[in-house]
């Protein structure tokens, strides 16, 4: 209890050594504080605050600029990318179109060629048929001529052979025999 009381009293207790109490104001110390503080303020203002605050501001501006630049670059890149994408899409479309056209053309060409070849083949077949017919006709007429010739020759031979008396007589006899029999 007494200890607590003593502690409470301490705040207003004047210490020994003649330095005064806790709440005594010392003019000398005030003068020194003023001088010290003002000198410190001047020294630090020149030595520290100005350069440090300047470099802080500089850096802040640098960061701000860099961020803005980066943002701008990003926007530019995006625009470029979009353009590229568009170009690519257009190119692809074009290519597709070219391919389609080429395919159509080739299809047409193929059909045409097929048609042409078919027609040619038909014509060739017709020609061939006609040729064959003609050749057959020719062959027939030649064969006929030959047959006629051969027949004439043969009949000539037969007639010449048949001009023998004996044979004629035999034939006539045969005929008469036949007629008698009937």
């Amino acid at each position: 209890m007494t200890a607590m009381f003593k502690i409470a009293l301490l705040a207003f207790y004047s210490g020994d050594g003649g330095n005064g109490g806790l709440l005594d104001v010392a003019p000398g110390l005030m003068i020194w504080t003023t001088v010290t503080f003002i000198l410190l303020l001047l020294v630090l203002k020149k030595l520290a605050w100005k350069p440090i605050i300047n470099s802080l501001n500089e850096r802040e501006n640098f960061i701000k600029d860099s961020l803005e630049k980066a943002e701008k670059a990003r926007a530019d890149a995006e625009v470029l990318l979009e353009e590229n994408r568009k170009n690519l899409a257009r190119a692809e479309e074009d290519a597709q179109k070219v391919i389609t056209q080429g395919r159509e053309y080739s299809e047409k060409l193929k059909a045409q060629a097929l048609e042409e070849s078919k027609a040619e083949a038909k014509k060739m077949i017709e020609d061939a048929t006609l040729n064959i017919d003609r050749k057959t006709q020719e062959a027939f007429s030649k064969l006929k001529d030959q047959i006629v010739d051969i027949a004439v020759d043969a009949s000539e031979k037969i007639i010449r052979e048949n001009l023998d008396k004996e044979k004629q007589k035999n034939i006539v006899d045969k005929y008469i025999d036949d007629l008698q029999k009937n």
Binding site: K6, L10, S14, G15, D16, G17, G20, L22, A26, L29
Partner: peptide
């Protein structure tokens, strides 16, 4: 004595 506390707190020569 508790003067040593004040000795610590107070200014001195």
């Amino acid at each position: 004595d508790t003067g040593w506390i004040m000795h610590h707190i107070l200014d001195s020569h």
